[in-house]
Simulated scan of single mutants.
Amino acid sequence: MTTPLTLTAGRRPDGTALLTATGEIDMSNTEALAAALDSTSGPLVLDLTGIEYLDSAGLSVLFPHAERIELIANPLLKPVLTISGLADLTTIHDA
């Protein structure tokens, strides 16, 4: 059974947009993630600390935004982000 994706928008203390995602990112909910990313302009911190699963459909949504996003990722996601090449295109911080 999959864990639904929850997206929460906010701001960091320095004013940078923050999008916190929890649950699983897969082909069933990438439209919601894409809409959230598209609705935020400028630099964005995407907190993936609460993501338990990220598939290739989810990765494909992140790549077009790689130049303007920074990711916060749990250790489980680090290999996926590295192997996909996304780690070479954006900054990834440890959770």
Rank of each mutant, 00 (worst) to 15 (best):
A17G: 09
E31Q: 09
P75R: 15
S56G: 09
G85P: 03
N74R: 07
M27P: 00
E70Y: 04
E31D: 14
T30C: 08
L81D: 01
T90E: 12
I83L: 15
A87T: 09
G42D: 14
L62G: 07
L59Q: 07
L86Y: 05
L19Y: 09
T90L: 07
A36E: 04
M1C: 12
D88H: 06
D55A: 08
I72G: 12
S56V: 04
I92C: 11
T91F: 07
T16R: 15
L54R: 00
D47H: 08
L54P: 00
L33Y: 04
R68F: 13
G15A: 11
T20K: 07
A21Y: 02
G10P: 06
P64C: 03
L76D: 10
I92T: 13
G50K: 09
T2H: 10
L5Q: 03
I69R: 06
E24L: 05
G10M: 02
E70F: 04
T8D: 14
D55T: 09
T8A: 15
L33H: 03
L76C: 03
G50D: 11
P79H: 10
D38R: 14
T82G: 03
D38W: 03
L59R: 05
T8H: 13
M1R: 14
D88L: 07
I25W: 09
T49R: 14
T30N: 05
L48I: 08
L54A: 04
S41P: 11
G10K: 01
S84V: 01
G15K: 07
A17Y: 11
S60L: 08
I83K: 10
D55M: 07
F63M: 14
A21I: 02
L48V: 11
T8G: 09
T90P: 07
P13M: 02
E70L: 08
A34F: 00
S60M: 10
L5I: 04
L54D: 01
A21R: 02
L54H: 01
N29M: 07
T82P: 02
L37G: 01
T22R: 13
A87G: 15
L89T: 04
L77W: 00
L37S: 02
S60R: 15
S84M: 00
L76G: 03
T2A: 14
L5E: 03
L44Q: 06
L81C: 01
T16P: 01
E24M: 02
D26V: 08
T90D: 12
L89I: 00
N29T: 09
V45Q: 08
R11W: 01
P79G: 07
E52L: 08
L44I: 12
V61C: 07
T40G: 04
L77F: 12
L62R: 05
P13C: 11
R68K: 13
P64G: 10
L77A: 11
A9R: 15
T3W: 04
I51Y: 11
H65Y: 15
